[in-house]
Simulated scan of single mutants.
Amino acid sequence: MRQLMVVVGSTRPGRAGLPIARWFTGQAESHGGFDTTVVDLAELALPLLDEPAVPRLGQYTHQHTRRWSALVDAADAVVLVTPEYNFGYPAALKNAIDYLHHEWHHKPVGFVSYGGVAAGTRAVQQLKQVVTTLRMLPVVEGVHIPWHPRFIIDGRFRPDEATAQAAVAMLDELVRVEAALRGLRVAGEPAPVAAGSPPER
């Protein structure tokens, strides 16, 4: 069975991302297209990027990086659960993405976003610029939740029908796109950059 990694992108206490991610994980398990793993960045506790070598070299010196690398490498598809902070996405999520390079390549990515009237979509548009640089492919379908606190009751996210249908549509598309990209992942990575190329810092 193909592996879907759901990433909880907010780390602040009281975040809505945790109940929303738990709900989406239940949707994914019911859907049956993937085995699902949840990674909570608050529990992963990555420090601000602290690897001396650039991520594309894969020369990791810290156990927390190697652990994160193994989690992402095992995933065939990714869903990022993100709030919108000041028209953008959380710094913790950008930090987690930036730790790695090849592990992200040729994987489909979906977004579950939440916020006010914009439902987190401005954060998603910025994230798409980042993930496409890492050769990920965002699917068009997404789950965007406006005024999300009204759906959280006793610590559980209870969506309306439109939100539940959006989750199914996104999961369907992740299954299709993952199958299309699988050959690129199996083919392996391009040759390393030649010696003397400018460093990435």
Rank of each mutant, 00 (worst) to 15 (best):
V112M: 07
T132D: 08
Q129G: 15
M136Y: 02
Q125H: 07
V139S: 08
L137I: 06
Q125V: 06
T133Q: 13
V131Q: 02
G120D: 03
G120P: 04
V140K: 11
L137E: 08
A118G: 11
T121G: 11
V139Y: 00
V140C: 12
T121E: 11
A118R: 07
V140Y: 14
V131R: 05
A118W: 01
G115M: 09
M136R: 02
P138L: 11
V131D: 05
L127F: 09
V117R: 11
L137A: 14
T121R: 13
G110S: 12
Q129S: 14
V140M: 12
K128F: 09
A123G: 14
S113F: 05
V130A: 11
R122L: 12
V112N: 04
R122V: 04
L137R: 04
A123T: 02
L137W: 02
P108I: 05
K107W: 01
A118D: 05
V109R: 04
E141F: 12
V140R: 12
M136P: 02
R122T: 06
P108S: 09
G142D: 13
F111I: 01
H105Y: 05
S113P: 12
A118M: 11
Q129N: 13
V117G: 12
L127W: 04
T133C: 14
V140W: 12
V109D: 04
K107C: 09
F111K: 00
A119T: 06
V139W: 00
P138D: 08
V109P: 09
H106I: 03
Q126R: 05
V124A: 02
L134P: 09
A119C: 12
T132K: 12
E141P: 06
V131K: 03
